[in-house]
């Protein structure tokens, strides 16, 4: 069975031209494979590049060298060299991403925010809406808020809307950046269940979980993201 995600010799370094061309190496020659049904937790002290790696898996960041390949349908797509529209396709159908913070779009109601990914992937409107309702209910977002734009929601509410959006479609690959950071115990538990369900249906999951309980509940293994080593070789 082919891995869902395959990272090989991936390096990332930022060059800050606005600050005298300062170079900030993040990580160097990472290798990682994630299989279907597996949940890998990115691990390491802060500043080692866990979020940077996660964003690289979503093609949000471009690799400085090395490759990120994902299984998209029957094809293997190399994100570093793929055309923008191919990456959009990959994001539409294959790779879901729950960021740390919800990027709120003014005026779009919560229910729409959650239903949108499914709708854009071609799920019929009614079904997409149903799914969104179920998720919002499970994540304890009061029904009176569904028709409101999440602009005014609390941090925890926004985060739950964000999680719901990430699970609105059964993505084969899920990237989760601290999905439980600002949630109470009850909602944390809901997210844990959602992750377990995703694993059970065969999703490959890569996440950053600072909460030890969550980590132990969902992670199959840890992947140590080691800070850049300046080895001469």
């Amino acid at each position: 069975m082919a891995p869902m995600i395959s990272v090989s010799a991936l390096s990332k370094e930022f060059t800050l031209h606005t600050q005298g061309g300062a170079r900030i190496p993040v990580f160097d020659r990472l290798d990682l494979e994630v299989m279907a049904g597996e949940c890998v937790c990115l691990h390491g002290p802060s500043g080692t590049g866990k979020s940077t790696l996660l964003r690289s898996l979503y093609a949000n960041y471009k690799p400085s060298s090395g490759h990120v390949r994902v299984l998209h349908g029957k094809d293997i797509v190399e994100l570093g060299s793929a055309e923008p529209w191919q990456i959009i396709e990959v994001r539409r159908r294959t790779v879901g991403y729950v960021s740390q913070f919800l990027r709120v779009i003014p005026r779009v109601p919560a229910l729409e925010v959650v239903a949108e990914p499914a709708r854009l992937a071609g799920v019929p409107e009614a079904e997409a809406q149903n799914r969104a309702r179920t998720l919002l209910k499970r994540l304890n977002i009061p029904e009176r808020l569904w028709s409101l734009a999440p602009t005014t929601f609390s941090g925890g509410e926004q985060q739950r809307v964000n999680v719901a959006r990430g699970f609105a479609l059964d993505y084969p690959i899920l990237l989760l950046d601290e999905p439980t950071a600002s949630l109470d115990a009850a909602n944390r538990q809901v997210v844990v269940e959602l992750i377990k369900e995703a694993k059970a249906r065969g999703a490959a999951i890569v996440g950053i979980f600072h909460d030890m309980e969550v980590r132990e509940a969902v992670a199959d293994r840890l992947f140590e993201v080691t800070a850049y080593r300046r080895d001469a070789a």
Partner: peptide
């Protein structure tokens, strides 16, 4: 592990 089948261009859809 089976060999990676590399296809840089997404073979499924050819877009005009």
């Amino acid at each position: 592990m089976s060999a990676l089948v590399l296809s840089e261009s997404l073979g499924t859809t050819v877009r005009q």
